[in-house]
Nucleic acid binder design. Structure first.
Lengths: 249, 249
DNA sequence: TATTATAATGCAATTTACTGCAATTAAAAC
DNA sequence: GTTTTAATTGCAGTAAATTGCATTATAATA
């Protein structure tokens, strides 16, 4: 393997996970630790990453105030994810839906927290594998290419056999009177099943989606126990939601 | 062979694989290393590629878009993946195991190919969502953090209910007499289930793993229908495998 | 503090690069 | 067709780069 290829491989790993261990480089690229260290050292000198004890981290990781340099992660979603994370307690059993907001939530879960997480979102599951104390269980099924979640009879059936404390879900569209709606029928079916499997349903939703609706209905607002948005609780837009016994954060 | 022809051959190689080794050029084009080096040097000066120690890489290789498609792929694994891909036909129903070699295989599947793919590897499933004509079905279960595949009773049970034409599997260790072995018991159980669900088992395995073994056994070599490595079929190491009715590519 | 893990350094073995040169080949000139 | 000329190629010797290992130093962690 050419040195240049190794360098690219290391950079891609850093780009993807924001960090990389020297031992991982050595093993996966089939070189000695020394070579891995030298590679990282050179990349550091070229200002492509930052070398730290035991590995390397991406340049933006430490400096930028916004946590992860995911271009899709809007700051509001991080705010929501941070609020949602405050609900988590050790040994909780939760479900995490797909979508970028839930993805942000998964990303923000503290490393020391012991959890059991169900999900049928591929990216969320991938992210959760980086959390040492989180048990991850994936609900299988046919994979929807757009949303990268498992759908179909298999998925809904598997969901019918579990019960979790909290179901953290997202939605495509939400409205105080029309409830949660989506444009994909299969996705709606799965979301229904998630809510049935959850003792409490927590909706993560950026304010942009408030007051919008689409073809297929997941549920009424009354079925949602808690809704988390980035707006302050006394925002005008939220008044309508208070009538549905929805707890707002 | 004319110099210009060589230059074209080198460029097409670089275009295809993003890289080329001087030793490969020398061997395949039947010239000395020196000539190969001189050719690459000229192409570099013409800005057709970038010369690096030991070979050359394509100019676009460093852009992050191509980088993401080349995470941690050893060149040998690409060779194996390419060979494996030749077995695929339209409308085939296959299973793809986890591991970097199988990942490379998933990556190389042509976009025009219509397939149904089962997998219980998160990265493989993610990759497959980029193939428009491939139906992806994920076998759910508890996710193993090291290997990022679904394991456990759920996974093996789900596997017991399907039947695929080809099962493309990897293994941690392989030996002609001891067969396929691994260090993780759960993983071995899943691999067994995969083989049971496959009409034909195709083992993708880099030569480095040949003649190695570990604690838990998946199966004997006789259970493998085809083994694909990057070695030439008359390599000495492979002689031992011929005795097991294993088809080598 | 003790213990472990990681880093830095020097060194030897290997691989690759460069240089000059002679032999060969292809093209040009006669 | 023959000779001349220039380009190309392979080889040998040397220089440089790369790599892995051993050793010592340093940093992290309990």
């Amino acid at each position: 393997m050419l040195k240049e290829e190794r360098h690219q491989a290391i950079l891609s790993q850093v780009e993807l996970h924001n960090r990389v261990l020297l031992t991982d480089i050595a093993e996966k690229l089939d070189v000695s630790i020394d070579t891995a260290r030298r590679d990282v050292k050179e990349l550091d000198q070229e200002n492509k990453l930052r070398k730290v004890h035991g590995g390397a981290i991406s340049l933006g990781f430490t400096t930028s105030s916004t946590r992860n340099t995911n271009i899709y992660a809007l700051p509001q979603k991080i705010t929501i994810a941070e609020k949602a994370a405050t609900l988590l307690k050790n040994d909780a059993v939760i479900f995490i839906d797909g979508g970028t907001t839930c993805m942000e939530f998964a990303r923000i879960i503290p490393l020391h927290l012991k959890l059991t997480c169900f999900t049928m979102s591929l990216p969320v599951a991938m992210e959760l594998t980086t959390k040492p104390k989180v048990d991850v269980i994936f609900i299988g099924g046919k994979i929807s290419k757009e949303s990268q979640i498992a759908i179909g009879a298999n998925a809904t059936h598997a969901l019918s056999e579990i019960k979790v404390d909290y179901g953290f879900i997202g939605t495509g569209y939400v409205d105080a009177s029309d409830g949660l709606t989506d444009f994909d029928w299969d996705v709606v079916q799965v979301k229904k099943a998630i809510m049935k499997a959850s003792k409490k349903t927590i909706l993560l939703c950026i304010s942009k989606k408030l007051n919008s609706r689409h073809r297929y209905k997941t549920c009424d607002m009354t079925a949602v126990d808690t809704m988390i948005t980035e707006l302050s609780p006394d925002d005008d837009q939220l008044k309508l939601f208070r009538n549905n016994n929805v707890h707002l954060i």
